[in-house]
Amino acid sequence: MSPSLSPSSSPSSSSTNVVVTITILFFASAREAVGGITSTTVELDINDANTKTLRTKLANLYPKLASFVQDEENITLALNEEYIPMGEVKNLKEGDTVALIPPISGG
């Protein structure tokens, strides 16, 4: 059975480019919550690749990160070194970098 004749087969074979790969950078307590790694890559469905689905995906991948990424007040998101204003959902492209920067206040 060739892939072109099987529309209901697994996503990986249904089309040539179904995901976008996003690089994630973790800072401060977000880094602690993911076990000390500084960065990772995640794949999002190309039809639904935005910062909202990214938050959900990260919460599922890293349960300890859930409280950070699900509440906008708990973390600053920056897309390709640009701050994403609260409440804004950005569409993500292949190769984008999203930084997760929890607020800090020490001095």
Partner: peptide
């Protein structure tokens, strides 16, 4: 513009709670 609203209290540790490398500040 960076932090429109503060994080929930108690969620972000202070330097006393979380520690800080002395040379960092």
């Amino acid at each position: 513009d960076l932090l429109p609203s503060p994080p929930p209290p108690g969620d972000v540790p202070s330097c006393a709670e979380g520690g800080v490398l002395g040379v960092l500040p």
